[in-house]
Design a protein around this nucleic acid. Structure first.
Lengths: 218, 218
DNA sequence: CCGCATCCGGGGCGATACTG
DNA sequence: CAGTATCGCCCCGGATGCGG
């Protein structure tokens, strides 16, 4: 991008990450950790391949992204955030929270979705309201890929689902799952709208936020 | 801007404020409060008039900016942030802090500057290290416009300079003033580099951060 | 197959001129 | 003062090619 040519720190930051796709590339690297070029493509539906290569180069030059060439057995380079790049995460989480209002009405007809994008909403909006109730795991399944929400000692963390079987499994559309996480949809309304809940309902109730104005129960 | 068409809250936020100049317009409105079209032009050197008009329209549609038409005696419309728009301020402050690293080497030859852009750095990096020492005011003058830093009861706030005369006045290049605020330049080095300090040096020392690695004293 | 580089078409962007 | 109008240009997007 052309520089704003302003001696202002906000403008300088945007000179570096204000380009189209740049912050979404950082989002993907922050959510995935180190990953390959094709992983980034999968997590950034809509990006064109030349743009992705261009941005990665620019971000590498600006010390936001580092490219590692693995040892000979593995041939494909791996991209990851530098420490400086990782410092963008709170800003991205801020944008996530700010943008929630544009999500509550559901996706546009041709919006793409990846389950991983629920990670920050889960960590932001969920809370353990019964810290003494012991650990538990909730699996969220929005169709394409699942995430695991771990609840323990008053803390919420998100992991990739592994062999560990969850105490509760919630399956539904991205719109409904996000509505549950943000409190815009209550459990009963979600189930009425097609969400399926297997396992411990009480574990889910333990972490969900209090319903917001738009969420009425039947 | 074209939508990213991703059902992700970060992407949706960038659909709204990811356009070129959009976040800088929000910066200017956050720093100034309600102001006129020409005020925005003055605070956004480099923006073209059609872009500014376009962005203001888009931001108004997205409920980030509100346009008020004053009563007949005053004929010119006034722009201000909505409540939703004001919620971008912590994000902009985060970008400011993140971008500081691109400022420490000084401005590019053709960078523009406005004194108001020192407001957030002052509020971020200064601190009252002697909360019981009584109130004081420091005026920062980078040539084009001044800002007043008020120190009182352990708190730092920035105001526009008025008739109140300051206890200390610091005058110098934007680069040197920012270096002082961030701790990259010590007082003595700043003075040696051409910064002029009138009034209470101790008041300045009371609020400046501890020098960072790059700041050596002579 | 993965990781890009190249090649256009279209539109966002930048600079200037102009008008109520 | 507050924009609108116009016109290039270059960035972006989509498709394709191609070497390792």
């Amino acid at each position: 991008m052309r520089s704003y040519r302003e001696y202002c720190s906000v403008a300088k930051a945007l000179d570096v990450v204000g380009d189209r796709w740049s912050l979404l590339i950082v989002r993907e690297l922050a959510l995935r950790g180190a990953c390959r070029y094709s992983d980034l493509q999968e997590g950034l539906p809509g990006v064109s391949t030349n743009l992705l290569a261009d941005r990665l180069r620019e971000l590498e030059r600006a010390d936001v992204v580092a490219r590692r060439e693995p040892r000979p057995p593995v041939a494909t380079p791996v991209f990851e955030l530098t420490e400086h790049g990782r410092e963008l995460e709170p800003i991205l989480r801020g944008l996530m929270r700010w943008g929630i209002r544009y999500m509550v009405d559901g996706p546009a007809p041709d919006d793409r979705f990846r389950g991983r994008w629920l990670t920050w909403p889960a960590e932001t909006f969920l809370a353990d309201h019964e810290p003494d109730a012991g650990p538990g795991r909730i699996e969220l399944d929005a169709g394409d890929e699942r995430i695991a929400v771990d609840v323990e000692d008053g803390r919420i963390s998100v992991a990739e689902p592994d062999a560990t079987d969850a105490d509760a499994r919630v399956e539904g559309t991205p719109h409904m799952l996000l509505g549950l996480l943000t409190g815009h949809v209550g459990i009963d309304d979600a189930i009425a709208a097609g969400v399926s809940l297997d396992g411990s309902r009480s574990l889910l109730e333990r972490v969900l936020p209090a319903p917001r104005s738009a969420a009425r129960s039947a």
